[in-house]
């Protein structure tokens, strides 16, 4: 199995933009060629060889495994738009890791900064430590965020994770986030996200959620007033077919969204609560 090892030689003075480090770009290249690939630091161009020691042998992107060692907290955009292969990062990593990737796998053995897995289109991103704000979120001004794929964060995710998620049961696209705990505005403007939180969540979970499922196994610091309690459940079916068992209180919402509270039951003439997104909080 082809494998390339990169080791950070020195800390950059300014953030290093390493969007070139992905299996797609490194596939089929010799170590010398890889060393000459361009990186950006501040307003200057530099090369991989300048900041990383490179070893191993490259091959087909599909089977290629890139292992990066060192404290990469100032290295941004690793694995941007990757479509295949695998990246293993041993250490903390900077912003935008795995943004817009559509396939393959990234494993971060450490913490990740903001925008990890932003606008993911597929593939898998795993972070063993904490992640910053905007995990799997849409970039500024985009109405369609994470479309598919899975993000797993062992620790805490920051604020506004998975905003504008864009899933579809019909098209079998299930943007999914598993995390330890989460900050405020989790799954804001969600259109079909699946979010499972093991611990506690800050205020405004599922704000403006049109559809989607948010399961919180801990507590919410402040539940939005526009969520309506439906009742207690013992089993939850997620969009991707998984089942979660346990005692949960089921809420429907967000009823502040026009699309949601428009649906009025013709028989009872009351607002239907069975159509929109769901929020489950441990009882």
């Amino acid at each position: 199995m082809p494998e390339i090892k990169l080791k950070l030689k020195k800390q950059p003075d300014f953030p290093l933009e390493a969007d070139v480090i992905s299996p797609d770009n490194l596939a089929g290249k010799s170590t010398a060629e890889i060393k000459n690939l361009e990186l950006y630091v501040a307003n200057e161009k530099t090369t991989i060889g300048e900041f990383f020691s490179v070893s191993g042998k490259s091959g087909d992107a599909k089977e290629l495994k890139i292992i990066i060692d060192g404290n990469l907290s100032k290295v941004k955009r690793i694995g941007e738009k990757m479509t295949d292969g695998e990246i293993i990062i041993n250490g903390n990593v900077g912003m935008h890791v795995g943004n817009q990737m559509s396939g393959g796998k990234i494993l971060v053995n450490g913490n990740a900064d903001d925008w990890a897995g932003a606008m993911l289109k597929g593939g898998e991103l795993e972070i063993t430590g904490d992640a910053g704000n905007y995990v799997g979120a849409a970039y500024r001004g985009f109405w369609k965020g994470m479309g598919n794929g899975v993000i797993r964060v062992k620790g805490k995710v920051g604020h506004e994770a998975l905003t504008w998620a864009d899933g579809s049961v019909v098209a079998k696209r299930f943007p999914t986030l598993y995390c330890g705990s989460a900050g405020s505005f989790l799954g804001m403007h969600g259109h079909g996200a699946t979010i499972v939180v093991e611990g506690d969540v800050d205020r405004c979970a599922g704000a403006d959620q049109v559809k989607g499922t948010i399961v919180i196994k801990g507590k919410v610091s402040r539940l939005l007033p526009s969520y309506k309690k439906i009742g207690e459940v013992k089993e939850i079916d997620l969009f991707n077919g998984e089942k979660i068992t346990g005692k949960f209180i089921e809420y429907s919402g967000d009823h502040s969204v026009k699309k949601n509270h428009n649906v009025i039951d013709k028989k009872t003439n009351k607002v239907k609560i069975s159509v929109n997104g769901r929020l489950y909080i441990a009882a």
Partner: peptide, 9 residues
């Protein structure tokens, strides 16, 4: 935020 959210609903 909560107040406006409630008003909207």
């Amino acid at each position: 935020y909560e107040l406006m959210n409630g008003i909207r609903a």
